[in-house]
Amino acid sequence: MVADLFSDFYQFADVFAFLILSAAGLAIIFGMMGVINLAHGEFIMCGVYVTSAAYHAGLPLPLAQACGAVVAGLIGMLLEVTIIRPLYSRPLDSLLVTWGISLVATQGTLIALGSTFPGIDTPGHSFSVGEYSFSSYRMVLFAASLCVLGFVYVLFMRTRFGVHARATMQNPGMAQALGVRKGIIYAVSFGIGTGLAGLCGALYAPTMNLIPTMGASFLVEAFVTVVVGGANVLLGTGPAAIALGVIRAGLNAWYGQVVGEIGLLIAVVLIIRVLPDGFSGWLTRRTS
């Protein structure tokens, strides 16, 4: 009984962590900045590859994972300054450009590094509850997803940078007139977004098969979570991941992965139909 209850929680936590970690970076880049970043998966892949390379070069895993996140963040900032910047007022063009970037990134990785990349040992042991044994690393992922949620919230709600960033994104002209340095704010925000994507990859690197196109397996879940969350991503992404996590984990458990996958997509359609402003819109309406 306890074992089954715990296992239900474990399954939910696992899906929740996957949704949050996939979506966190995109929540900033797409949710706040309005860039439809189809290269999101490739920033995740970048995090994975850097982590693996650093780990095999001898760094301890946590440090290697930090490298993965930082490198993805830096590349993101670089791309923001060079390519993304003219596209803020043109979300649909950002879709094309980032799709182009994603093509170049996956195929470039394939040509430069080959079709596969060496994997990493999953750290940590397994633990048993009743008749089941679980991977303790999955709990680390869950904890990390909560930390990421907290980090993003505190960063954008409680720091000076966060206030400036939100102000800039709402009204760039006004913010600039008040002395906020718009260029830096945008570059750093974008870099934090891609850095979080890199962190997602870094965290999942020890649990996956490493190939250049692996980022694609995160993309759909990431977009779906952000959109269901609604316009205010700081408020909406968490509840969205909880709702989708419960639905996905429940369907997986009762009907298998096929129904889980299709069910998740249908659930997204229905949620949007019922809550046209996403979770954040609904929450704001309830609280105000």
Partner: peptide, 20 residues
């Protein structure tokens, strides 16, 4: 051959940046 996808990506991104 293998460079096709890279060229497509560059072409696409480049065109969009030049022709909004």
């Amino acid at each position: 051959e293998q460079w096709a996808l890279i060229l497509m990506g560059v072409l696409l991104a480049g065109t969009v940046l030049i022709a909004p």
